[in-house]
Amino acid sequence: MAKTIKNIKVLIVEDDKDICEMYAITFMRKGFIVYTAPDGRQAIKKFQNKIPDIVLLDIMMPNVDGYQVLKEIRKNVNKYTPVIMLTNLDANDFTREAQYDDIDEYLIKSHNSPSEIVEKTIEVLKLNKLIVDSVDK
């Protein structure tokens, strides 16, 4: 069920409004369908309602943090949804709470520009065979 970018639903979970908007704009410019969530609780809700193809997940958020969201996402055994951790926490801090095996990519926000984030996301999608190479071009 390969899709083109246009059909891909991205859920961006980010508590910083500015950053969230920034990524949303970037993804939308590329043609993704973008859903955003300002905290973990809403993220879980949106994940259940909208059924995104991929989730970009921050860790440090009010109410429910990224780890819990990841756990919730991974509870669904029927469908595997790729998750990219998009955070400013170092990987060391992450591995204290969660496992690399549960996620598809770990990106540090300040290391990558928004367009780079999109590129990496597309790579993950390709790896999960959610989009076809040729469609990208």
């Binding site: 920034m22 955070t87 801090d93």
Partner: peptide, 20 residues
């Protein structure tokens, strides 16, 4: 951990928007 996060967050915004 916190300071890195807190330092990085505004930077991310600045860099992201500037990159636009």
């Amino acid at each position: 951990a916190i300071s890195s996060h807190e330092l990085r967050s505004p930077l991310t915004s600045i860099r992201g928007y500037l990159s636009f």
